[in-house]
């Protein structure tokens, strides 16, 4: 996956510390608003980007303070594309959210919730893309919805 840095691209680099995902949320929201996304879809985008950034900090960069999370935002062909890159190797398998009933009634651990939220909130998500620079999760959300 080549990183795009052109006139339709914004890229930010975040410290690997929880809380900074809000910078990515705000940037994505501003960009999506400029393009004409409706508020409901901007909220979906913000939550999905937040979860992708937190996963990158926790699972990709394993909370290493010197690591970075790079968020690349791009709009083309009616699709807003956000790539969240960490310095990890990706996930051996994409965790599956067991559902709240199993968590509460069978005391299963709450895992995969962030991934589940991303999958539900956006039109397309690709996990486990590796590049020479790191591991990337790509989120796509369409303007027309």
């Amino acid at each position: 996956m080549a990183r795009r840095l052109d006139e339709r691209t914004v890229e930010i680099s975040l410290p690997n510390q929880v809380g900074y995902e809000r910078i990515a949320m705000a940037c994505c929201a501003s960009f999506a608003r400029m393009i004409g996304f409706v508020p409901e879809r901007i909220e979906d985008l913000k939550s999905a980007v937040a979860e992708a950034c937190i996963n990158a900090m926790q699972h990709g960069n394993k909370w290493r303070p010197e690591a970075r999370v790079v968020v690349n935002m791009n709009f083309r062909d009616d699709t807003f594309i956000v790539s969240v890159m960490d310095e990890g190797d990706g996930m051996p398998e994409v965790p599956e959210y067991p559902g709240i009933v199993r968590i509460i009634e069978e005391e299963k651990p709450t895992r995969g919730l962030g991934v589940f939220m991303i999958q539900q909130l956006v039109d397309r998500v690709k996990f486990n893309q590796t590049t020479t620079e790191g591991h990337v999760v790509t989120i796509e959300i369409k303007l027309t919805k």
Binding site: V18, I54, I100, I104, E107, L113
Partner: peptide, 19 residues
């Protein structure tokens, strides 16, 4: 309020206790 998956996990554990 900003609510993320970490916060929702906390609420799920809270609901498990209340149940």
């Amino acid at each position: 309020a900003y609510i993320n998956s970490g916060g929702i996990s906390v609420l799920i554990q809270f609901l498990a206790e209340t149940k």
